[in-house]
Write a protein that binds this DNA or RNA. Structure first.
Ligand SMILES: [Mn+2]
Ligand SMILES: [Mn+2]
Ligand SMILES: [Zn+2]
Ligand SMILES: [Zn+2]
Lengths: 138, 138
DNA sequence: TAATGAATGCAACCGTAGTGCATTTAATGT
DNA sequence: ACATTAAATGCACTACGGTTGCATTCATTA
């Protein structure tokens, strides 16, 4: 049993061939991936299967969904210990308008925001758009 | 010539009947509106016209577009002096998951965020999801 | 090995966003 | 007032990500 299989089983996700491949793909990427990215990476795979796999991964805390403002949902593996809940691991995300990549800045937590009285925060999303480190070198 | 007509002309937007109505509609609302909202408010109006009106309004700095994470673009009138550029009027937005309204918290500016070296910020989007003041009372 | 439930494949549907083009409307100069 | 011209509008259609229903296949286990 490989590490990936163990990881999936630990999260109560049956480690099917497709799921292992998708997990591997996510682990190799250094930026968040869209459903279409995976679709293109595995010509043979069904869009629906990929879609539902990502859904399952998200529900089980294997990936978190990222809304980077492009209106295309992105996904990235959760760091160990990430539970994607408020006041816990709310890191910010950066979307590069040049290479179109979106990355987790896991070391950069979202600062606490004071709200007007009566408002109750349940989730926070902070996205910075601009030029990433790779693109700014060229 | 009404105030609205003056406002539109000041922003180099020809004050047509439809545009005046849409502006009025936006001004009356205390929360951001989606294209569909306007569509439903004016049964007779063409969706395309509304769509392009909002685009024009946005280009001319009359409204700003809000991405509240619902994947439905919302629009709200700009405050006087709002130019919607970075380091200028970057207020945060609140999306209520109970009443589904999105509001501008214009008094709450987005705090400055330190980025890793090489990253260049051009735009920031901060959305808080939760329960709004009206909904939290009930 | 049969029964069972989960995972997958296939085919659709949905809603928002966006475009192309013909038509109407309004502003301008003669 | 009329013709000219550009802007605004109306209509039809497309694009695309997301989503669902249902039949089929696969894997677990009694
Ligand atoms: Mn992330
Ligand atoms: Mn706003
Ligand atoms: Zn980049
Ligand atoms: Zn509310």
């Amino acid at each position: 049993m490989t590490d990936i299989e163990k990881t999936l089983e630990n999260k109560s996700v049956r480690p099917t061939a497709m799921r292992i491949l998708i997990y591997k793909y996510l682990a190799e990427k250094d930026s968040a991936v869209a459903l279409t990215d995976i679709e293109n990476a595995f010509e043979k795979a069904e869009r629906t299967t990929l879609y539902r796999t990502l859904k399952t991964f998200e529900e089980k805390g294997i990936v978190h969904q990222i809304d980077d403002g492009t209106n295309i949902s992105k996904f990235a593996l959760c760091e160990p210990g990430c539970n994607c809940e408020i006041d816990q691991d709310l890191h910010l995300h950066f979307h590069c308008t040049h290479c179109d990549k979106t990355v987790c800045l896991t070391e950069h937590k979202i600062p606490h925001i004071n709200l007007p009285s009566g408002y109750i925060a349940e989730d926070v999303n902070l996205v910075i758009k601009g030029i990433c480190d790779t693109c700014s070198k060229h």
